[in-house]
Amino acid sequence: MSPASPKLAVVAAETGVWPQLRAAAETAAREEPHLGSLLNATVLSHKDLASALSFQIARKLGDAELATMSVREVCDDAFAADPAIVAAAERDLIAVAERDPAIRTLLQPFLYFKGFQALQAARVAHWLWGQSRETLAFHFQSRMSELFQIDIHPGATLGAGLFLDHGTGIVIGETAVVGDDVSMLHAVTLGGTGAERGDRHPKIGKGVLLGAGAKVLGNIVVGDYAKVASGSVVLKPVPSGCTVAGVPARVVNCPTEAEPARTMDHTLADVVYDFVI
């Protein structure tokens, strides 16, 4: 299977995610017959993305305590009640195609990228949370954490067009809000600063880039299109369009590039503005 064209995300956005995903599955089934049954079960036997997605989530999360068919029924109910969940999944797939140079086709994130899969399960868990079905929402969270090593509280609010690159070790707390078009790498924490209750987690603006190992703690705002450098510990609000780095984090470049989450540029400017935020 050859590397994807840089225009994969554009093509998917213009022609639709589902046709692109089906085409990739058909090609893969021809090229690798050993995976024919898997590709038929997960993609080719379904009529649309919602059906395939509910099957995929159920295939992953189903276990002895909650049967696969029961998980799928919950997902189908969520998608029917809130079509925005599937629309967000489409934008997530386009985001991966746009921002991950390792991707070949949309089949990769759909079948194999745990960041994408955890996001979709988290969206269903959040829907359950909103329906006051907290015990089942926590069950989804627990299974996600076991399977993917990604811990997203079902109360957290997630935007669309998100990219969790690698994903391992990401923690997102109950009252966290993540805006649209955000990218974050492994070991990012959106957490609290203690045992306080209530609204205690970060609010991440649109188009923010959170580098590997970044820790954003407390009920603080990271402004739109900001960038948090890898390994930073952010304890105070971050201005929109600025880059912060260090422990504790300081503003080191402001303004930064226009859309850091799309370029995935983790480098820092040579000339910095070093002052405490």
Rank of each mutant, 00 (worst) to 15 (best):
K203E: 01
L136E: 14
F55Q: 12
C254A: 12
T193G: 00
I170M: 07
C75S: 12
D92A: 08
K227V: 04
T27N: 12
D270Y: 06
L164D: 00
A249C: 09
V171S: 05
L44D: 00
L235T: 07
S45Q: 13
I150M: 06
C242M: 08
P237N: 11
I220W: 04
P202V: 04
M144T: 12
V247M: 13
G231T: 11
Q56F: 05
E259R: 06
V238A: 10
E32G: 00
L136M: 15
L21W: 11
D165P: 06
Q149K: 09
V271I: 15
H34Q: 08
S145K: 08
L61D: 10
D274C: 08
L158C: 11
E259V: 00
V238H: 05
H139D: 09
V221N: 02
A89V: 03
P109M: 08
A64C: 01
T267L: 14
L164R: 01
E174W: 06
A58D: 07
M264R: 02
L190G: 03
Q120F: 01
V171M: 10
A28V: 06
A214C: 12
C242A: 15
V177R: 15
H139C: 04
P239E: 14
T256M: 01
V17A: 10
F275Y: 15
E174Q: 14
A95K: 11
Q141G: 07
L209H: 06
F138Q: 13
L119P: 01
I172N: 01
S37R: 15
G130E: 11
P260C: 04
K60R: 15
P33V: 05
G241V: 07
V71D: 05
C254I: 05
S51I: 00
M264I: 07
E174A: 05
L190Y: 03
I220Y: 04
P202N: 12
L235Y: 03
A89D: 03
A212K: 02
E146W: 05
E31P: 01
R59W: 12
L107F: 12
V124P: 09
S2I: 14
V177E: 13
H201M: 06
K7H: 06
A97V: 09
I204V: 12
E14Q: 13
A137R: 04
